[in-house]
């Protein structure tokens, strides 16, 4: 498969421009990749590097790729312009700054969490993290709650929650869900 399979805007960025745009847009948002993807779309379309169709296809690929969606988006975006070198440049630009911040914050936490005040703040933070994780779950399942897909989505969610209650491993939960979706495709499609 050639990079040109995914067509889009007339112009294309250099690898340096690509990495700079990805690093800036991905590493200035908090709360997940959806906001970053929107920032990237605006940047790349405003410069004539990307059109709506190409963006839509890249979003679809990133949603279906295992792991962190925004990184898959960046890989596909970079590959579109410069093949594997572009994909790797975009991946590094998207992941290294945030990883360094996480590393430094974690190292600091490991040294200061002996204090009761810090532990109290962290406990409140854990509560907030729990709420954010639940919000992530809602963001994932919300597109499937349209009228045509609701029954299938609720069925799969109920089976998954049942398996979780039975202490099934996450991989098994996902495999069972995939089998259900494959065997009972009616009404499963989003949108």
């Amino acid at each position: 498969m050639k990079a040109s399979t995914v067509t889009g805007g007339d112009d294309r960025p250099s690898i340096r421009q690509l990495a700079a745009a990805v690093a800036f847009d991905v590493n200035r948002t908090v709360g997940g990749g959806h906001a970053s993807i929107e920032l990237l779309r605006r940047t790349f379309t405003s410069r004539g590097w990307l059109d709506a169709d190409a963006h839509g296809l890249i979003v679809a690929v990133s949603r279906l790729t295992p792991g962190t969606n925004i990184l898959a988006y960046c890989v596909t975006l970079g590959w579109r312009y410069h093949g594997w070198p572009g994909a790797l440049a975009a991946l590094l630009a998207a992941s290294i700054p945030a990883s360094l911040i996480v590393f430094l914050l974690t190292a600091t936490l490991a040294q200061i969490d002996r204090y009761a005040v810090v532990r109290g703040l962290l406990a409140v933070g854990v509560l907030a993290a729990g709420v954010l994780v639940l919000a992530s779950a809602w963001a994932l399942i919300k597109p499937y709650l349209g009228r045509s897909a609701r029954v299938q989505a609720l069925l799969i969610a109920a089976v998954a929650l049942g398996l979780i209650a039975l202490d099934a491993t996450p991989v098994r939960v996902l495999l069972v869900a995939a089998v259900i979706g494959f065997l009972r495709p009616t009404g499963a499609a989003r949108r």
Binding site: L127, I141, A160, L161, I180
Partner: peptide
């Protein structure tokens, strides 16, 4: 397409369990 959608929905269910545990 349905199999992939089902995996995403199950991921959301797993997140619910993890979020409740964090709370």
């Amino acid at each position: 397409r349905a199999a992939i959608d089902a995996v995403v929905i199950a991921s959301a269910a797993l997140l619910v369990a993890a979020g409740v545990r964090l709370l």
